[in-house]
Amino acid sequence: MAEIRLENISYVYSEGTPFEISALDDINVTIKNGSVTGIIGHTGSGKSTLVQMLNGLVKPARGKVMLDGKDIWENPKEIGKIRFRVGLVMQYPEYQLFEETIRADIAFGPKNMGLDSKEIEERVLEAADFVGLDRDLLEKSPFDLSGGQKRRAAIAGIIAMRPEVLVLDEPAAGLDPSGREMIMQSIMNYKKRTGATVVIVSHSMEDMARYCDYLIVLADGKLLMTGKKDEVFGRADELTAVGLDVPQITTMMNLLAGMGIPVNTAVYTIDDALNQIYKLL
């Protein structure tokens, strides 16, 4: 539905003061229409800034953010409309819930879009379905829900705007394995049913390997590499050189290769590893 192209993006914090830090330095990358793209990098690599540029929360110092071929900052007064098209779920989004009921909170975004009440109601229910929140939870206060439910309610608040691009910054951080699984399934559900483009920032390489098609790797504000996930994980040594993780299974395959066993190291799921090992046995 929508493609985002970043052209020569740069960003500097506290420009002109002694605290000046270059957060992003000449980034050129395309997020393909309908893809699931992962962004990898350390805290401080500039990925949070980059993510906030996708929906115009942060304006690049230099360079352009192109949404379907149009510069999103062409008309700065219309930047609000971009935020409905590119939905951003920030880190720990459950902390932004504020309404008395989950239903009202999910409706906040659609209401700001100026939709009529029938349409809003429809979208709230649809969004709740996508994230697997039971209807009877909708009347509850956000503060009576479990951690995982709150997180899903917050994501539903963005999904209810029906964004063409759904961007999530660490959507599963701090959750237990089953909570994490449910969040990732909700996102994939939305993607499958609407064909939206999805951008995920995560430290979990296992999740990245499992869900993403493309990866963007940032290091110290620069684009280190980008490409299909097997291309990126195939360069495991470059990733570990800048202190990034690779999936455990990739590390293991690299160790095997180092021991002189002929395996392909661009492997990141258990099934692929199994296939490789069967061949050798």
Binding site: L57, G80, R83, L88, F108
Partner: peptide, 27 residues
């Protein structure tokens, strides 16, 4: 952070009447 998050949901803190702006602070 909270301001950014609410802006991402279309909240507007800079325009409208004084009462509307005060209301916009609730989120």
């Amino acid at each position: 952070k909270i301001m950014s998050a609410q802006k991402a949901r279309g909240a507007d803190f800079t325009s409208g009447s004084l009462i509307n702006r005060a209301k916009a602070l609730i989120p």
